[in-house]
Design a protein around this nucleic acid. Structure first.
Lengths: 198, 198, 198, 198
DNA sequence: TATGAATGAGGTTTCATTCAT
DNA sequence: GATGAATGAAACCTCATTCAT
């Protein structure tokens, strides 16, 4: 029970920090602001996280471990057409990030920082994503479902860019989630059409 | 002559700052580091730029005004197939940014900041790019050269994302410029294939 | 208990700052000098006061609220001759300021600054003083105890000037408190004689 | 002729500086602001004045040497009643300062600074004034025109305070010069009544 | 576990003054 | 005489982190 209460506090810190990082950026957010929003003392933050960097890292770690797990599930289900699975994967990522605009913002902005804290985690997330895509495209190539000369790594990169740019647009313009998803689907289709073997 | 010397100093500040912003990020670069690298005093930085923010803004403003000008030239040349012009435009952007990896890095990272300094300039650059693409795609639609239902704004977004993700990969992995361009061309082709009317 | 300790520190900052402002003036006193004299770190000053301006304001605010309160008490005691109350009021002010020469100095010098910090507080203090005098002189007029045509506001101004110039002399020449009070009383008498109805 | 042109520049610097010191205070006025207002370069200021302090000192020196000279003239004219001469002297000072509100402001504010630059000049001006008054009152005492026990030095102090407080009021409230003079005359009369032998 | 006062290093910026032109 | 770019010391202030309670 004590464990539970403690976990609740951790989550409150994470959600407060995410909100503030989204609004003002990592560097323009102070620990005391986070403490204020989380309704606890600065000292308490350091009970749960060993540094400000650490807090940022943990925000990403949990979230993207889970997210990538879900993508993997989709990709390893064997029955579907690989390009449909690709489509579903992209939708899933955007769908999930669209439920927490603050997280989406932080993901888009902070994951590019040269910030030391993230020099470990950011490439890790990208790598995981690219590996999943690469495997999927390899599968598609083996089944002869995509054009020749398709570079699987490049598909990873491109789709990551697609996700990012469309989320970025949504985050800044603030339209409905539904519209966001329709946009993603359309753009994904342009792209998938470009690599599908007819 | 004094004017010329003065302009030389300005450029030295800009290149030093760009290098450091690329390496450590805007917030983790101090004015005194910039002064050191530019081989002048901190006070001198403030002779040429009225604040650190201002310095960052000017770095972007000059560079992207020129770059977008060049893209516009390509797009408004009338004789080519619009999708070829699109291809050429993407190549141009990546080509140019590939000559200055520091600038590329700064472009990729800092243009997403919620940093107040950039809240004006970043959207401006994106907007200019999107407008150029939108006009081009509209032209292509009028000439019936792309599939129905193509959303011009979405093409802007997607290609921006494409450029970013491929540059980002290059910046981090550091392969040759030639390889970078080949990647961009390939990815651009996937995408353009996806929207071209056959 | 923590509260008490905290209040002690505040007071130490205030007294150190007052001493230094008196000696070198507000602008020629740095926060780090204040910190040194108060035997704490610069950062600590900002725990108690949100800016250097704020520190100066608080020095005045507390002191003069109390002082004006005491003057008011004298003036609203009903039994005495109003001009005697005026005399007592002037004595009180000088008496009190003579117990803290640093405060007197700061009062004389800084309250005239065009310093933004004080643009709110300085007129407030003067106004409070003038209002008290005005009421008192109005009372005297109603009781027919002063000459006709006496301008109450002018009495406020003049006596304020009297207090200031005599304190200023004392602060610079540094004679005994007793002598200071005698001077004030004499000068006050000259003035009061000039307005009293015989 | 060159001499004349040079003197004109000096005067332009002085008037610009006075204006800015009046508005923002000595410490909140920068040399480059003064240069801007005087329509010349910073370097030129240093051709005419050896430092910022020096500039402030010279502003006072010229002005008050002249002013005190005029007061002296009045006081040494032998035919008038000394207390009338006192009255005329006070009027003269206020009259003159009322023609240049900026100078009045600077006089009121900066002459109290503990500013090193002024530690020489400020007491000098006060001393000169007090000496003139002391001589005058001594004359009056000899002629048996004032009450016994009048302290000449105290009259100097008090009237200086009177002048200051009334000018201060005018400077802040900004009424007409005529009204200012009437106020001064009234207040002077209260005071002179208080010391005159009936 | 929880607190928040205390720290001190480091940030950006200002500015009086100098000096080569 | 006139200029204004260059300087560098010093200013105010912030903030991640610690630690005694």
């Amino acid at each position: 029970m004590a464990r539970k209460k403690s976990e609740k506090k951790r989550q409150k810190i994470i959600s407060s920090a995410t909100k503030l990082f989204a609004k003002n950026g990592y560097f323009c957010t102070s620990m005391s602001e986070i403490a204020d929003m989380a309704e606890m003392s600065v000292g308490s933050l350091y009970v749960y996280f060993k540094s400000k960097d650490d807090l940022l890292i943990e925000i990403f770690r949990n979230y993207f471990d889970e997210l990538m797990g879900e993508v993997e599930e989709i990709f390893t289900e064997t029955e579907q057409h690989p390009l449909d699975k690709l489509f579903d994967g992209l939708s899933l990522v955007v769908n999930k990030l669209s439920t927490d605009k603050d997280m989406a913002k932080v993901f888009l902005v902070e994951l590019r920082q040269s910030n030391k804290a993230l020099q470990s985690i950011a490439p890790e997330i990208r790598k995981k994503y690219e590996d999943l895509i690469t495997n999927l495209i390899d599968e598609a190539k083996n089944k002869n479902l995509v054009r020749k000369n398709i570079d699987p790594e490049l598909i990873g990169l491109s789709t990551f860019g697609l996700i990012e740019s469309i989320l970025f647009d949504w985050v800044n313009k603030g339209y409905t989630k539904k519209k966001l998803l329709r946009k993603l689907e359309k753009a994904a289709n342009y792209f998938i059409q470009g690599i599908r073997k007819n």
